[in-house]
Every structure is written in structure tokens, then in C-alpha cells.
């Protein structure tokens, strides 16, 4: 039985004041035009795992939507800048994910998961967990990156289409917005 994701905009995002928070920045069409990653993981489940990973470390999570671009590094770095702990997670609709830190250069990062097709829900949980541990000042082992040289022939062109489509939902100069997240079990009937 699937879960449904409801994202409600709560005005412009503001920088956090709590040092025990991690901000998740989602891309313009995440949970909106798109509802699942490139390998059809529902966005509801992806977000649920990221949030659970953060919360199980005793940290709080906040979700914002980045609207003025579809570049993962920018989204993740923006999330980090809005985060009270300085740690942010960026995630694109197709699933590509990055953990970023406010003090780092935009083109740098703490952990990057470039191959969206290889990310499963367990990995998203670990990403949330590691982000929370960075926020606590720890140095966790990076989440193991899977490697599959056959991912390219299967997914590369679809990834390009998804990226182009996501970019169509970019609103130039729009500020990030705060999101209220509700994840509920869909009714069986």
C-alpha cells in the first residue's frame, strides 16, 4: 500500500535558528509535477526515509522547495545555508542527492550520490542519518556508493529528459519556500 505526499507552502523560507536541524531542499518539481524517482521510488517514501534518518539521530528536519534552478549543487548548498546547523540535503525529482555544508564552496560537497538509478530507500535513510551526524559535528563514514556500469545504457537518456522537464518548472528569481509535509497511508479502498 502506497503513501501519499502532501506538500503545503508556508511562505518564504527563512534561515533556521536551531543548531540541531537539517534542512532538506527539494527541486522545483519534486512531489509536484513528478511523483517518483527515475526508478519509480515514490517521492513520499524518499522524503519519509530522509526525514526518518534525520529524526532517528535526535535531530529536527525542515523541508524547503528551491524554485529558481534545477542544479543539485545549488539546491543542496541553499538548503545548507538555510539550515541552523549549516548542513543541508538537496534532492532532485529523479533522485540524485547531495549532502552539503554551508561553509563549503558551492561546487564542493560532503557526499554526492550522482547515480539516481542506484539509490534505494535504504540509501535515502542512510543519507538522512549521515546528514544528521554531520550536523552533530560527527565525521560519519560516507554512505557506500554503489556502482553499476550498465546504469548508463539503461538510464542516461531518461535522466536527461527528466532533467530538462524539471528545468521547465524553474521560476527565475523565485525565493525558496517553506513546506509543511504530510505523508499518509493511502486508503486501501
Amino acid at each position: 500500500m502506497g503513501r501519499t505526499l502532501s506538500l503545503t507552502e508556508r511562505g518564504p523560507a527563512t534561515p533556521g535558528r536551531h543548531s540541531d536541524e537539517v534542512v532538506i531542499g527539494i527541486s522545483p518539481a519534486f512531489g509536484a509535477f513528478f511523483s517518483k524517482t527515475i526508478v519509480e521510488l515514490p517521492h513520499a517514501e524518499v522524503l519519509r526515509e530522509l526525514l526518518a534518518g534525520i529524526e532517528e539521530q535526535g535531530m529536527r528536519a525542515r523541508v524547503i522547495r528551491y524554485r529558481s534552478g534545477s542544479d543539485l549543487a545549488v539546491i543542496a548548498h541553499t538548503a545548507a545555508r538555510y539550515s541552523g546547523s549549516g548542513i543541508g540535503v538537496g534532492v532532485l525529482s529523479r533522485g540524485t542527492t547531495m549532502i552539503h555544508q554551508k561553509q563549503l564552496l558551492k561546487l564542493s560537497n560532503l557526499e554526492l550520490f550522482p547515480q539516481a538509478p542506484l539509490l534505494d530507500l535504504e540509501t535515502f535513510r542512510k543519507v538522512g542519518r549521515n546528514a544528521a551526524r554531520y550536523a552533530k559535528g560527527e565525521s560519519p563514514e560516507p554512505v557506500p556508493a554503489r556502482n553499476d556500469y550498465m546504469a548508463r545504457p539503461r538510464w542516461q537518456a531518461k535522466a536527461a529528459l527528466l532533467h530538462i522537464k524539471e528545468t521547465e518548472f524553474v521560476t527565475p528569481r523565485a525565493e525558496p519556500v517553506e513546506l509543511e509535509v504530510a505523508i499518509s497511508l493511502a486508503d486501501a479502498g
Partner: peptide, 14 residues
């Protein structure tokens, strides 16, 4: 059939 195939989309260069 594990390979990926997509439709053309000339407007964006696909």
C-alpha cells in the same frame, strides 16, 4: 530490453 530508449524531442535537442 534493459537498454533505455526515448522518443525524440527536437525542441530541447533530444
Amino acid at each position: 530490453n534493459l537498454d533505455g530508449f526515448v522518443e525524440e524531442w527536437p525542441e530541447v535537442g533530444m
